[in-house]
Design a protein around this nucleic acid. Structure first.
Length: 871
RNA sequence: GCCCUCUUGGUGAAAUUGGUAAACACAGCGGACUUAAAAUCCGUAGCCUUCGGGCUUGCCGGUUCAAGUCCGGCAGAGGGCACCA
């Protein structure tokens, strides 16, 4: 009897509507079951879903469906990170309104997500560009302002003088604006900042509590925060310049202080600016440095340049000596104090600089194993000290004695503190988060500038500050700024005519709290704090590693800020984090550049793969395997795959083979293999279903029936364990094993030659199998579940409970090694005593010859594992 | 330059965390069914071998009864950060 092929084109839409109608994925905040919040990073509505989304959301969906089956009230929402530059670019290029473009894309992508059968609660959907969402974000901003979490200060931006607009770093190409091609200028603008640096220490130390985060992400965040301890001290100027009597520096290596041979300050350092007022050459030098500073390549290749100011400072270590002060291109104003002392003996960069400008090189220590007279040690190459290295210090100020770098650092700090030259200081690399963007398509900052009252927050009753829709992208500059009347508004304080802030917020703000909003998305305040506290932290967050730093750090900061402003009481937003690998595909290159996989035919002969162009049969080069991207044209459209093979096949392929944290290579053969398995499961169950649907479900008593039951129960247990660990590829392998085991017994059921015992064990196994594959292939699972005679939906069924007695064996096959090499196997009762195992192992035919009639020197018995006989 | 990760058959990988290396799949090869093909099913498969065995997890060394797994060194690949003091 043959079974009709499984037709995904009919089955998948059928079950999608059935789930929708029964609202099986809508989650209530009032539910007695324990809650479980699984979230995947929400997409930017760029136009179409790509394979990376499919992988990300499939993993999340498996977890959501599995947890639902395990009795949790699962929250699994979806939304749109919908503000951002691409919408404005599309507006300028295609003359389409950013709002229209965005909502159109959302509609397309929502439709695509629905065809994948994800168990999402669409009733909670929102886009960050919805007025209802950004209205609450404006409220949050004002609350944070009240709480002292927001500040306003100057920051430098890339300015396009032709388009009269601020450019993001990615819009600056070779130092020129991407549209106008005009050389980019640097401008200082007053901007809004969240004072994330106030939380630097907390954000750093709390990383230790995130034990379900990848180590890699925690390390990256720790490095980004960049805590260091060093010495901040002042070098006295020989002659004061205006108000400047000394030069404040910061160093993490105070133990090299004695080797200082010059001072260097940033071109933007106040002292440099002061000097530049009367020094044309210095002004020119600073301009020059700034110009070459725009392009990254130029920066990397730029050699160390300095400008000797002629000023000198007193050397605090050796009285009477002085050091020259340079303005140098490699000193950053943003870090530390914008000034350093240079120690060429122990720093590569300082060494390069000193060599170029003929400055003295004084070692402050020699390697501990240096044999000669320490004073004769010549530092040809800078020796960069490590903190644990044992060294002989030389040329040190009196009283500073130590054996290792770490001790040297503390000793020098103590010395400097005692002489009141400076003090020990902790520095963070982390900078405050500038959120002002001079763009239209973002959340307006609810601030008003009044000529008499200054900077005034918009009154809460006047919120939301809504983006105007009648805007003009033809004129250069920010549309909000040149809108005819939008910015005109009365001052909330004095009522006089005033102007709105025309800057909008960084889109990272939108994504820093959306996970909290999902817990009560229609609330008239940013959160319903009870709902937020009940659901948060997110139990499992899944997304790409590219968000390891900014998005995740900002979200962690926002949770703290929202706790401080009373919107919730959760400081860490994501208890579990998983970063999945990319979807990659090989590339095909012809004379006209890259070719898309759909245009290419790949053949294999004698292990050699060749690619030809379908259109004309011309030869193509099979290139490297790369992340799917438009530029490499190696993109496979999920829609095409769903159409040809179905969503279940795409989902199954995404979960098979590659561990989820690693990149997965998309191959035609792999997809076909996945589809074969879909069909195989269908044939297995549909073939036997006419017999099985009316059978009682029972555990087999003996023989094949018992084997079937054992396999089904064991798989239910093991797949559960694997899914808990997000080891989807292992779960998939176990399901293959189960299906392999079931093949023959199901054949005999189908052919009508199975015993009653076998029939009922197969009936139960078929139920089990349907429910086990349900998180991964939900449509196929429903269809199987139904034809097996069940009248519920698999999507709401509990995970099959395994019988503990069936998953453990009475006997074990122990490998028996002699001197670490396997020589035999021993079948023995599971709880056999150690000495019994030893006795039986030594009596084995394959072991006896190695004993040469004598005794074993030693026998290691590890119960249920191995026996090793040492002779 | 600093920090992190990875390296197992032709390929993607697995290995109960120190206990039988290569489960499962893809590609391959042989066969069955078919006029033929597709689909399906069965079998086979790390390398060498004098058929007794021997060797094998990037390379070298160490610890251990036992190492893919732990330690030290080296090489290669990938990622993050950075003129960051």
């Amino acid at each position: 009897m043959s079974v009709e092929r499984y037709n995904h084109r009919v089955t998948e839409p059928k079950w999608q509507s059935a789930w929708d109608e029964a609202k099986v994925y809508e989650t209530s905040n009032k539910d007695d079951r324990p809650g479980y919040y699984v979230l995947e990073m929400f997409p930017y509505p760029s136009g179409r879903i790509h394979m990376g989304h499919v992988r990300n959301y499939t993993m999340g969906d498996v977890v959501a469906r599995y947890k639902r089956a395990k009795g949790f009230n699962v929250l699994h929402p979806m939304g749109w990170d919908a503000f951002g530059m691409p919408a404005e670019n599309a507006a300028m290029k295609n003359k389409v309104h950013p709002k229209e473009w965005t909502y159109q894309n959302i509609a397309t992508m929502r439709g695509q997500l629905k065809t994948l059968g994800f168990s999402l609660d669409w009733s909670r959907e929102f886009a960050t560009c919805d007025v209802e969402y950004y209205a609450q974000q404006q409220r949050l901003f004002l609350d944070m302002l009240d709480e002292g979490l927001v500040t306003r200060k100057n920051a430098r931006v890339n300015w396009d003088p032709v388009d009269m607009t601020v450019l993001a770093n990615e819009q600056v190409i070779d130092g020129c604006g991407w549209r106008s091609g005009a050389p980019v200028e640097q401008r200082d603008l007053t901007q809004w900042f969240f004072k994330i640096t106030d939380y630097a220490e907390d954000l750093l130390t709390a990383l230790d509590s995130l034990d379900r985060w990848p180590e890699k992400v925690r390390t990256m965040q720790a490095n980004w925060i960049g805590k260091s301890r060093g010495l901040q001290m002042s070098f006295e100027l020989c002659e004061p310049i205006g108000e400047f009597t000394g030069l404040e520096i910061y160093t993490t290596r105070p133990d090299t202080l004695a080797g200082a041979s010059f001072m260097a300050i940033a071109p933007e350092h106040p002292l440099a600016l002061e000097l530049a007022k009367t020094n044309e050459e210095l002004t020119q030098f600073a301009t020059e440095v700034r110009r070459s500073g725009t392009s990254e390549e130029a920066l990397e290749k730029a050699e160390k340049l300095g400008f000797d100011t002629g000023l000198r400072v007193k050397n605090p270590v050796r009285e009477g000596e002085t050091l020259p002060v340079f303005v140098a291109n490699f000193i950053l104003m943003d870090y530390g104090t914008g000034a350093i002392f240079g120690c060429p003996a122990h720093d590569q960069r300082d060494h390069d600089f000193a060599t170029k400008y003929n400055l003295p090189i004084t070692a402050t220590f020699v390697p501990a194993d240096f044999a000669g007279d320490a004073d004769e040690f010549v530092a040809d190459e800078p020796h960069v000290p490590t903190k644990t290295e044992k060294v002989h210090y030389i040329n040190q100020p009196a009283g500073v004695e130590h054996a290792t770098g770490a001790e040297g650092i503390e000793a020098t700090i103590n010395w400097a503190e005692a002489k009141t030259l400076g003090k020990g200081q902790v520095q963070y690399r982390l900078r405050d988060w500038g959120i002002s963007r001079q763009r239209y398509w973002g959340c307006p900052i609810p601030i008003i500038h009044c000529d008499s009252c200054g900077v005034v927050p918009e009154a809460r009753e006047n919120l939301p500050v809504v983006l105007p829709e009648d805007i003009d992208f033809e004129k250069p500059g920010n549309p909000l700024d040149h809108h005819p009347n939008w910015k005109q508004t009365p001052c909330p304080k004095c009522g006089d005519a005033a102007r709105r802030e025309t800057d909008t917020m960084d889109t990272f703000v939108d994504s820093s709290w959306y996970f909290a909003r999902f817990t009560a998305p229609r609330e008239n305040t940013p959160t319903d704090s009870k709902a937020a506290n009940d659901w948060l932290p997110v139990d499992q967050y899944i997304g790409g590693i590219e968000h390891a730093i900014l998005h995740l750090l900002y979200s962690r900061y926002f949770s703290r800020a929202m706790s401080a402003t009373g919107h919730m009481k959760v400081s860490e937003p994501f208890a579990g984090l998983f970063t999945q690998g990319m979807v990659v595909h090989e590339t095909y290159k012809g004379p006209d550049g890259f070719m898309a996989p759909v245009e290419v035919k790949v053949e294999e002969q004698d292990g050699k793969r060749t690619a030809t162009l379908l259109a004309d049969g011309s030869d193509l080069e099979i290139g490297s395997i790369e992340k799917m991207s438009k530029s490499k044209r190696n993109v496979v459209d999920p829609d095409d795959i769903i159409d040809s093979y179905g969503a279940d096949t795409a989902r199954w392929f995404m979960l098979s083979d590659s561990p989820p944290e690693r990149d997965v290579i998309w191959t035609e053969a792999g997809v076909e293999g996945a589809n074969r398995f879909v069909q195989r499961v269908w044939r297995l169950i549909a073939g036997a279903a006419p017999v099985l649907k009316d059978c009682t479900r029972a555990v087999g008593e003996a023989g094949d029936a018992l084997t079937v039951s054992k396999a089904a129960h064991k798989t239910a247990m093991l797949v559960a364990e694997d899914v808990e660990k997000l080891a989807f590829n292992k779960a998939v392998a176990r399901i293959y094993e189960l299906v392999n085991t079931l093949a023959k017994p199901f054949d005999s059921v189908t052919n009508g030659c199975a015993s009653k015992d076998l029939q009922s064990s197969c009936a139960q196994a078929a139920d089990f199998l349907s429910l086990i594959v349900s998180p991964m292939m939900p449509h196929l699972a429903e269809e199987c579940w139904t034809i097996l005679g069940n009248d519920t939906m698999a999507a709401v069924e509990a995970w099959p409970t395994h019988d503990a007695g069936l998953v453990t064996e009475d006997t074990v096959m122990l490998p028996v090694q002699v001197n670490g090499k396997k020589r035999a196997e021993l079948l023995i009762s599971k709880d056999a005593a150690k000495d019994e195992i030893e006795k039986e192992a030594l009596a084995l035919d394959a072991v006896v010859p190695y004993l040469n009639g004598g005794l074993a020197k030693k026998v290691i018995v590890v119960p249920n594992r191995i026996v090793n006989v040492v002779v």
